[in-house]
Design a protein around this nucleic acid. Structure first.
Lengths: 337, 337
DNA sequence: TTGTAGGCGTTATCAA
DNA sequence: TTGATAACGCCTACAA
């Protein structure tokens, strides 16, 4: 049926050893033999059986990523871009990417990690949307499973990660808003157990401090990082007796929701209300008004994470361990008009 | 290191054969033995090595799906929902889902299919966004690889699929627009080689015919099914000397772009211009004005496709072969105000 | 430079 | 009801 290495060997009157070594580029194979092997393999359409190779090598050549999806209709451009980056880089490195979705912190999420680890389905994991204290980090570290993360955690384990300095970003954003004349600045965040919420919120507070503006708890609300969440919390803030004149949001999706809430109230975003987000998704650029945001190179980060993880898995020299990037403030019409 | 079936057998003083059969639920194992085996396996934390099993059984217990992504920043809620459905159902059936992204019709896409087929990485494929004549169908059919599709093609091969009747949907939509008083109705479609474009466009034309409205080629434009594409083509149509008063769009994303173009021109969508889409993504419901759309149950369709494919793979009786659904017209403010 | 042989962890065949 | 044994396809020490 399908062509195996044995068929190729037989057709060439060689041993499977020689064929295997020729194909794998060992240098103890005669140049002429190698060429014959390559030609025949191609002609017969031979493709190594990955499963057999995996069993022999005791590696799966597969990376795992579990998407933190709360609902089936979950949709965040951040993840589309992130997954695209993971997929492209793994493919380029001749690895596979195994994906599943699970609601964060649920039992079902834990079950998937366990299944993949114990069934040796993957050689390592990419994690993101980290919790301040993250059971995944503990579980993987204790089981000696390689992993890398986007954002870090407070857990007392050594691991490699990329982080984008949300605190510094928000400090810069607040300075920008203050410069545009705002003093009453609101903040719509995400769940408090998220690393990114902690650092971005810290940036918000530092930014206020820097400008000598008093922190007003009423101007801060917790959303769920979706459009709908931004819309809800946006309405709340805008319906205050003394509403903010600017709202900084934990991510672009939230900001999009806030913009909608504002427009529904007849406010002209950019004039009557400034709104800013974080991520730099494509939609932020295209909406009306274009959204001021702290952009991070999601696609490239994903690719880089894969490379870091593969270095760790292969035991190669690890070139990058803890990468810190700064988001880029893109000032657009939602705050500058 | 990790526990194998051999360890369990040794601990119980049984042969690995018996352990294997006990665990797999064969009925020629003494009830008492079976219980001992189960208890010990659990105690020792034994999890079968999936790779070894795959090699032996010559099956991968994995389904493949290649996401048609044109750019790294590609992001369409349709696919988020579709992939979520695929992932949930495969997981529930104890299968894995292998995902990659590739630009449609590119050489790189073909390479992935070949690699997965020849490397026996997957037991079957789910396809969507079908081309009228689709090389994937031909390739898989000729290689006897099981697959199911969302939408069908014109290829002369037998295969199982689910389709949503876009033609009937657009006929209904056009009737609605006509009833709202529109006579000058535009259409923004997708690439002409797509099945869904062919059928939805056919519905548009039939709808015009039914209302006795002459077909005006200038009112039809080809987009690329993205927000940005909708925005571009929307501007084009709206800048005509005699612009349409209603625009039917091939999908929601396109419609969202058209709405933005209209709003930029100061048009009040729902009053000055009617706009409608197709898909029923969440955002369509939340935008302002809410978007009239032809909704299809994307998540459920994905799950159903997986079940159909697994029936085909397992050789079970196939309960569903060619499923035809009708989209549901959701009339909202973008056309009814 | 090439070949022989053993084994990765399962499952399936056959015999006991 | 249980066990010995042979694959599945590949890689790699070791021998030739």
């Amino acid at each position: 049926m399908t062509v195996t290495i044995r068929d190729v060997a037989k057709a060439l009157n060689l041993s499977i050893t020689t064929v295997s070594r020729a194909l794998d580029g060992y240098d103890d194979v005669a140049e002429e033999t190698r060429e014959r092997v390559f030609r025949m393999a191609k002609e017969m359409g031979y493709v190594p059986n990955r499963v057999a190779r995996q069993l022999r090598r005791q590696r799966s050549d597969t990376l795992g990523y579990i998407l933190p999806a709360h609902t089936p209709r979950f949709s965040d451009p951040f993840y589309s871009e992130f997954v695209a980056g993971l997929g492209d880089e793994t493919a380029e490195q001749n690895f596979d990417l195994l994906i599943s979705t699970a609601a964060p912190k649920e039992e079902s999420e834990r079950v998937i990690y366990q299944k993949w680890v114990q069934g040796r389905r993957v050689d390592g994991f990419i994690l993101n949307r980290m919790l301040l204290q993250d059971w995944r980090v503990q579980y993987l570290a204790e089981n000696n499973v390689p992993f890398v993360t986007f954002e870090r955690t407070l857990d007392p384990f050594e691991f490699n990660f990329i982080e984008v300095d949300g605190q510094a970003g928000f400090v810069e954003l607040l300075a920008h808003l203050v410069e545009m004349g705002h003093r009453r600045i609101g903040y719509v965040g995400g769940p408090s157990y998220l690393t990114l919420q902690a650092s971005r919120f810290a940036g918000y507070r530092t930014g206020l401090l820097n400008a000598g503006i008093e922190f007003v708890p009423e101007l801060v609300a917790e959303g769920n990082m979706t459009r709908a969440g931004g819309y809800q919390t946006g309405k709340m803030l805008l319906d205050l007796p003394e509403p903010p004149t600017a709202i900084a949001c934990v991510n672009d999706l939230t900001a999009i929701g806030v913009v909608r809430a504002a427009q529904e109230r007849g406010l002209k975003v950019g004039h009557d209300l400034a709104v800013a987000g974080f991520d730099g998704i494509e939609e932020a650029e295209q909406m009306n008004p274009a959204l001021t945001t702290l952009a991070q190179p999601i696609y490239d980060i994903a690719r880089r994470l894969v490379r870091m993880l593969l270095q760790e898995i292969s035991g190669d020299e690890i070139l990058e361990r803890r990468v810190r990037l700064k988001p880029k403030l893109l000032m657009r019409n939602s705050t500058t008009h």
